[in-house]
Structures are given as C-alpha cells and as structure tokens.
C-alpha cells in the first residue's frame, strides 16, 4: 500500500521570530528554515510502516516555493521513495493546500495520508481535517499510536481529557502528535542517495485550483511582553509575597 506524507517548510523551531517594522508580517529574511516538526513525525511514521512491511511506497508532497525542495530532499533522505513539489510563491491557506493535496490524492490513490497536526508558523491545526473532509474520508487527528491491519487503521489520539482510540476504514487521513514516534536524523549517505531520488515538480498555477486568499492579514505585532519580576531569597519570602503583595493565595 502507498502512503502520502504532506510536509511543510517553516521557520526552524529554535529561531526567535522578528516582526517587520511596518507590522505587515513577520520577517523571514535570512531566517533558518526547516521541515515542520510534526511533518518530521509524519515522515518517520510512514518510513517505519514501510520498514515493517505494511507500506510499499512513501511519497512526500509539499506546496511551497522553490526552496521548499530542501524539505522534500530531507523527506527523501529520511526514507521517502519519491516526492511531488507543487510550486508556488503565493501564500496558500489551509483551504488551498487541502484542495491541492486532494488533486494529488486523486492522482496517486494512496491508502493513507499522514500529515502533521499543526504547522508551527501559522499554528492552524486544520489542513488534515480539511483534506479528509474534501475526500469524504475518515480522520484521526493528534495520533500518538497507529496500528494498521488490512484496510483498517486503529489510532490512539491525544485529546484534552486523555486518550481516545478510533478505528478507521482506509483510505484515511491521520495527523501526528508529538509522542507518535521520535524522528531519526538523516545520515550522510542517505542525504547523498536522496539527491538521486525523483522529485516531480508542478506549477500550482497549472493545476486549476482556486487558491485565492480568503483571509487578509491586516497587521502583525509583538505580544505585550511580561516584565521580569523579582527574585525572592527564601520560601518564606515567596509565601509572604504571594499572600500580601500579589494576593493570590
């Protein structure tokens, strides 16, 4: 069976975000970029399913600028077999990404689509659910355990109250949570090999999908920063401050 993994190029999670002086957006010039951490987990899961003999082919896909090819190469180095790059310099919203991915799904007919639960730039947490809905498929978001048997996937999900287990008919969309697995690092020989793996690049403009923005970015600003408070020298002093100064206990 075939698995499609959607990966997104985002700011590296260690980088401190700057806002442009005119408040039009965040400033990403000369900022280190990487694969969204939740997408790394999705790639790892797909590769592990292949290693366990459940999956025969792993296809990575991204929607993004030319530079997003780097993240596809990373996916290939981690074990994906081939990649599809839907290239565009436009900012594409989740709805547009879901529609573009639907096209790819219709072409590729995977039994499973693995995605991250959330991009760490927009913090949207929606594209997987949207693709699933557009396909009329089952979904399991926030997965912390996935077991596949025949044409069913049993997925444990992280929910606010604890853990929920669902059984899905395949094909389905599963989005990954942090504890699903620990992504491996790409080894140098694999990075070299990945350079020879096929990447099919298509221009988004040629796909006939409406990706016109539905949300206008009006303004981006820094949140009001908290002021650093004081150091207390002892537990007694802490208790006193909480009681008599902050009045919270």
């Amino acid at each position: 069976m075939k698995v499609l993994v959607a990966v997104k190029r985002v700011i590296d999670y260690n980088v401190k975000v700057r806002v442009k002086p005119d408040n039009s957006d965040v400033d990403l010039t000369n900022v280190k970029m990487a694969m969204n951490p939740f997408c790394e987990i999705a790639v790892e899961e797909a590769v592990q399913l292949k290693e366990r003999g459940i999956v025969s082919e792993v296809v990575a896909v991204t929607v993004g600028p030319k530079a997003a090819q780097e993240q596809l190469r990373t996916a290939l180095a981690l074990g994906a077999d081939r990649a599809i790059h839907l290239e565009t310099d436009e900012v594409v919203e989740s709805l547009g990404v879901a529609k573009l991915l639907k096209k790819v799904v219709e072409d590729e007919q995977p039994s499973l689509v693995l995605m991250g639960k959330q991009s760490i730039d927009t913090d949207n947490n929606q594209t997987g659910q949207m693709l699933s809905a557009l396909m009329g498929w089952a979904q399991a978001t926030f997965a912390s355990k996935v077991a596949i048997e025949g044409d069913t996937a049993t997925v444990e999900r992280e929910i606010d109250g604890g853990l929920q287990t669902l059984s899905l008919n395949l094909p389905a969309v599963i989005t990954t949570d942090l504890r699903l697995n620990e992504p491996r690092y790409a080894k140098l020989p694999d990075i070299m090999k990945a350079k020879k793996k096929p990447v099919d690049t298509r221009s988004v403009a040629d796909l006939g999908v409406d990706i016109a923005p539905r949300v206008e970015l009006v303004r981006v600003e820094l949140p009001t920063e908290r002021q650093e408070g004081v150091r207390v020298g002892s537990v007694d002093e802490l208790v006193d401050k909480l009681k008599n100064e902050a009045k919270v206990i």
Binding site: I11, V26, N125, P213, V220, E221
Partner: peptide
C-alpha cells in the same frame, strides 16, 4: 477558510490570533 485559536473579536469579520507559538499576534480579516 477557518480561523483557529482566536483571542479577540474586533468586528464581525476581523479577529486577533497568536501565530508562531504566540511570538506574534496577527490581526486577520
């Protein structure tokens, strides 16, 4: 196109939401 995790409603079409793990706040319409 849905909006997640809105922290303030400015008007019937304009909302504020944190992005980049709350490192910035976006006003979106």
């Amino acid at each position: 196109s849905p909006l997640t995790d809105v922290i303030a409603i400015e008007s019937s079409d304009t909302f504020r939401r944190p992005i980049y793990a709350g490192s910035a706040i976006a006003t979106v319409k």
